[in-house]
């Protein structure tokens, strides 16, 4: 009896020491799960999820403080990927955080711009160039389409322009030719 207790106690101490040592020795800086979640998020930095950017949202998900369906730019596909990563059931996007929109970039009407720099301060990725009292312009290649520059503009000179598909951006579509389709067309 005593021997058994002794063995168990010794085991507990040994394992405890090993675990404690490895916790110190193999300490991981930052939160690796948040990193992985952040890699899935679209980096729009729009804040529609209720957090100040993609990274804080990723951390919130990793800490179990936020749900996976709060990112409209990521769309259903993003939710699916997050669900896969976290091993949970995918769920529909939470409408409260907005709905997915076609990809757009901001466009500044340079006739109306007064050069107030408010949009520059609002842009989360520094994709607007310009200075005080000078016309601002959007660097389209770097714009994430987050729309954060729209509300601060005092003269409403910013609009969102959907990205049109041109030749270099054209994509092959999924060839939907399979059987059920035949059934539908034949019955129709």
């Amino acid at each position: 009896m005593l021997a058994a207790i002794g063995v168990m106690a010794l085991l507990a101490v040994t394992i405890g020491l090993v675990l404690g040592w490895s916790a110190v020795r193999f300490k991981v800086e930052g939160n690796p799960l948040a990193e992985k979640i952040d890699a899935i998020l679209p980096q729009t930095q729009c804040g529609q999820c209720g957090f100040a950017g993609c990274r804080p949202y990723a951390e919130a998900i990793a800490n179990g403080e936020a749900d996976i369906n709060q990112c409209p730019p990521g769309g259903e596909e993003g939710v699916k990927k997050l669900a896969e990563l976290l091993g949970v059931e995918p769920k529909p996007l939470d409408e409260a955080h907005g709905t997915p929109k076609p990809k757009s970039v901001a466009f500044i009407d340079e006739q109306a711009c007064i050069g107030c720099t408010l949009c520059i301060q609002a842009c989360p990725v520094d994709a607007i160039s310009g200075a005080a009292k000078q016309i601002h312009t959007v660097i389209a290649a770097e714009c994430t389409g987050c729309e954060l520059c729209l509300p601060p503009c005092p003269v409403d000179c910013i609009s969102m322009v959907p990205i049109v598909e041109d030749l270099p951006h054209w994509k092959w579509k999924h060839p939907v030719v399979m059987m059920k389709r035949i059934a539908e067309t034949e019955e129709a």
């Binding site: 952040d38 998020l41 679209p42 980096q43 729009t44 930095q45 950017g53 993609c54 990274r55 989360p124 990725v125 520094d126 994709a127 770097e142 994430t144």
Partner: peptide
């Protein structure tokens, strides 16, 4: 690549 660029720019801004 676009997302990586946006992340980098956002982090730099912060």
């Amino acid at each position: 690549r676009a997302a990586d660029l946006a992340r980098e720019r956002h982090e730099f801004r912060q």
